[in-house]
Design a protein around this nucleic acid. Structure first.
Lengths: 241, 241
DNA sequence: CGAATATTGTACCGATCGGTATGTTTGTAG
DNA sequence: CTACAAACATACCGATCGGTACAATATTCG
């Protein structure tokens, strides 16, 4: 048995002396009871609850039930509801949102097809039967505008809301094929239009529309930015309408 | 002074005898204190609160503060929160949503211009500085999908959500110019696309985008349904991009 | 085995939720 | 004036909100 002093915090003051919080530990090397749940799985479950009900609508009872743990475990593992929301949002972005960007950069595929695959992948996620309908970010951005959310949560979701448009703008400004088609001239406007479209399909999917119906929306959107289905070279794999 | 018996309710029972609630009134003709608020103005204010915060996010404290009355007055005038929401939703539809349909039926105006005016009128409402940003219905439909709303409120907002698409479909199927352009063949699909677009702009407006930016979205959407700005006859009043 | 540590379940906290009972005020009718 | 009715303001109700204190239970180390 030994004694050790661990510094765990400093209060910054304007005076010469600082106050330090210290902890006295009699036995630094000692285990404890093991976590009875998988933290990643619990975070995934929390994400699903927020995805379905939003920040306000997701009560701690909903969360703990969905995650299969109880409140003290939740607070020990994730801080509080706001912190859990921030982590769930980041998990959503990393796990669900960002992987879909790869469709944009798939070499050897024509621009229109890459954009179409990208948009359809997003749409597919919005209509997936295994997840809540619609888009996590779109839902929570709408909620955040009501000024009903704590500050950090609002900041996080606000950043997430700007992510897609910034990425698409950057993409359209730098992609060779996009430049050849002079889409880079209006990159911001086109990106805004596409992001508006997927926010629209998110709303429609959440309202109950299915993938098959909304697929036609994507094709009309591509027509809207000057990339109709039967473009000049007849190398298109399909031509509808 | 006289006495009168007024029947105000019957409890239906499975037995031969029914229990009736009666009220004894000594003086049927007697006034009372006057309402100190305008019911329509109060409903308008409630609508604004729901528009900004949604059903769940709008607490009774928010509502009574916005409406300038206190809780007992609210319950006397509108029933309860759910009933107030239903009435506020109907008020929104009658006052804000439906009047915009007139742009569609304006005789002597080309189809594209009518559609454009209709869509821009909606967009204008979504970006109006004097109202909460976005669309009341779009917000609450998204909220309703989380199953956090009472049954009647959910029904009302669900009906409201289907309204625009049904109207646009009917319009495209019957309008002469639309039929001449064969838009009636795909009326449902086109209506779905347009409704998706305005739901998208509602989300973007709520996220902070302004009218000027989103105006370009409307023009691209019209291009998406085969009505580009510079259509065959050069009678168009403007040609951008 | 204890001693120390971390997680668990339960039971509880103050605040706020939607909703209401109650007494006072303001109005009308006789 | 008195009798009555309707709306007002206050204060309160049980339920639920997010968040925690606490004791019991595992787990690791000496």
């Amino acid at each position: 048995m030994f004694v050790e002093i661990v510094l765990i915090g400093i209060i910054v003051s304007t005076h010469r002396w600082k106050i330090c919080y210290i902890r006295l530990a009699h036995n630094i090397m000692a285990g404890g009871r093991k976590l009875e749940f998988n933290k990643q799985q619990a975070l995934e479950a929390a994400m699903h609850v927020f995805w379905k009900k939003g920040f306000l609508g997701a009560s701690l009872a909903d969360l703990t039930e969905g995650m299969g743990i109880n409140k003290p475990s939740l607070y020990a593992a994730f801080g509080n509801k706001e912190s859990l929301f921030v982590q769930a949002t980041e998990h959503y972005l990393n796990t669900y949102a960002k992987p879909k960007n790869e469709h944009l950069y798939h070499t050897g595929t024509p621009l229109r097809e890459r954009l179409r695959n990208y948009l359809l992948a997003i749409l597919s996620g919005q209509c997936d039967e295994d997840n809540p309908k619609g888009c996590y970010v779109s839902l929570c951005v709408a909620e955040a505008a009501g000024e009903t959310m704590p500050a950090q949560a609002q900041n996080t979701i606000s950043q997430a809301g700007n992510y897609a448009q910034a990425l698409l703008t950057e993409f359209l400004q730098t992609d060779d094929e996009a430049k050849a088609l002079q889409l880079d001239q209006e990159a911001e406007s086109i990106a805004l239009f596409l992001v508006t479209t997927v926010n629209g399909t998110a709303a429609m999917a959440r309202a109950g529309k299915g993938y098959a119906e909304l697929e036609t929306v994507i094709d009309r959107a591509l027509t809207g930015i000057g990339l109709p289905a039967d473009t000049r070279p007849p190398v298109s794999d399909q031509d509808r309408c």
